[in-house]
Amino acid sequence: MAANDIYEEIMQCIADGDEDWARELAQKGLDEGVSPLDLIENGFTPALRAVGERWDTGSIFLPEMILSADAMKAAVRVLQPALQEAGGGAHDMKTCVVGTVKGDIHDIGKSIVGALVEASGLAVIDLGTNVETELFVNAVRERGSCVIGLSALLTTTMVEMKIVLDELAKAGLRNQVRVAVGGAPVTQAFADEIGADGYAEDGMSAMHLIQELAAGLDPAPGESMSKVA
């Protein structure tokens, strides 16, 4: 089967948000000798981007976007071993660590951002809610260069974002990371004030922002999947 056919199928399957089909197609591509990187870059990523554009223009609902994202994730999991074999380490899948800061248990905004970012092709580590500052710092120690997405919904916990930034600086890790902040009470002005690298007010712009920040992590952005909001 020609690669083009499989790309068309991938386009359809991601649009349908069909996880099983996505896994099947990933495997089928590998079996037919298409490189895993090609499958991602010419297949799954453009397919998901198309879905994202439809959400951006208001023609689909968030659950469609999340289902498509989950299907993409499932495919990437199938491709991961081959990717690693093909070219060094965990490919250059960049990482985003998300979490709701200490003292704050608002969950869903952070989870939506995590899901969308993961769908955009980054590896996501979700530290959950009420996350101790130390855990963010440790994650950077373990993962190295990454984007951190901090969420806070309370005025009492917004200050924790500044503390995370300070602790990263103290640990000498600040220049390895890009820090994005968000959550209902957070503003661009607040983000600037605490020296965060970016702020976004909803899920879609958060995804674009974090893609951009991730691209900036790499001295040679090369095959960046980022699309500027």
């Binding site: 208001g58 609902f61 968030l62 659950p63 869903i108 905004g109 939506i112 209902a184 909803d202 899920g203 879609m204």
Partner: peptide, 9 residues
């Protein structure tokens, strides 16, 4: 509800 176009409350 969660608004399914913006992803906000």
């Amino acid at each position: 509800i969660l608004d399914m176009r913006t992803g906000l409350y």
